[in-house]
């Protein structure tokens, strides 16, 4: 991997829209070409080097490109938007729409991340070591397809409407989630190890989608019906995957723990599942 380092020159109240920070766009270019890449600042177009010190090495192909954003990038939007390969590491906070519509590769943010992170994600791995804002992995307004693939892991807590209109893929939150987790979901898997906010799974249709709540849930919608308490074999596969492939060791402590199964949202004739781990 060739590492390119982008060091933010300071914080700006006006956000910078920098979808050019992507291995797909940077890989194969020269350093001057990268410095001259266009970013949107307010209603004006500027070059990337006006906001970042650009240094390091550029790979011949995007899959060999490693991009490190070294510093606070909470004012930088669309980092890694639509990327298909390579790797981005943000050493600090990152702004809205990070990894939105990404199809492959990986993004790691060591700090916190703003709203719409991983919105309409299609593939790849997105990890946030801090907290995430609202609408993580959600569908953009007007769209009926949220995440259709990929995996998002947040070590901290997240805001509201996580995974709205989710169809495929996986979201793992080690902290708490805000209200409307998995609203309108129609497939996909959500694992929450903290507490799940109210109105989870509202309007969810199902299609194999579920929300696994290991740290309890604030309230369940009356349109979810209790079925049974069981220890599903399929959950072993996911929990082992979380531990083995994503390093989430806490997952193994829930293997073979009984779970209460609720099915809904009956308000829309859905058969999504909310699985709530029994308290030890």
């Amino acid at each position: 991997m060739r590492k390119l380092v982008l060091k933010p020159k300071g914080f700006s109240k006006i956000p910078i829209e920098a979808e050019v920070i992507s291995p797909d766009i940077i890989g194969g270019k020269t350093l001057p070409e990268v410095k001259a890449l266009s970013v949107q600042y307010g209603n004006k177009v500027h070059s990337l080097s006006e906001f970042f010190d650009v240094g390091g090495r550029i790979a011949k192909t995007p899959d060999e490109q490693d991009i490190v954003v070294d510093g606070d990038a909470s004012h930088v939007k669309y980092i890694g938007k639509g990327m298909t390969t390579g790797r981005i590491v943000v050493q600090g906070d990152a702004g809205m729409h990070t990894g939105s519509q990404m199809k492959g590769g990986s993004i790691t943010v060591t700090g916190n991340i703003a709203d719409w992170t991983g919105a309409e994600m299609k593939g790849g791995l997105l990890r946030v070591l801090g907290d995430a804002g609202n609408l993580l992995g959600a569908a953009y307004r007007g769209s009926s397809d949220g995440m259709t693939g990929g995996c998002i892991v947040v070590n901290g807590s997240v805001g509201s409407e996580v995974a709205s209109f989710m169809r495929r893929g996986m979201i793992v939150v080690l902290g708490d989630t805000g209200p409307f987790t998995g609203v309108h979901m129609n497939g996909g898997e959500i694992f929450v190890f903290g507490k799940v906010g109210r109105r989870a799974g509202a309007q969810a249709k199902g299609n194999g989608g579920f929300i696994a709540c290991f740290g309890g849930i604030d309230e369940l919608l009356p349109t979810y019906r209790y079925d049974t308490t069981f220890t599903p074999t399929f959950m072993r596969l996911y929990l082992r995957q979380l531990a083995g492939n994503l390093g989430i060791d806490v997952a193994t402590s829930y293997i073979d723990k009984p779970m209460r199964r609720y099915r809904g949202d009956l308000a829309v004739g859905g058969n999504a599942e909310i699985l709530v781990a029994e308290k030890a």
Binding site: M121, G124, C151, M170
Partner: peptide, 18 residues
């Protein structure tokens, strides 16, 4: 029956039925 999907877009894709 419930279709179970694993690894879509980020890992080895697998399909199961519950």
């Amino acid at each position: 029956q419930v279709k179970m999907r694993m690894g879509d877009g980020w890992h080895q894709r697998k399909r199961f039925w519950r």
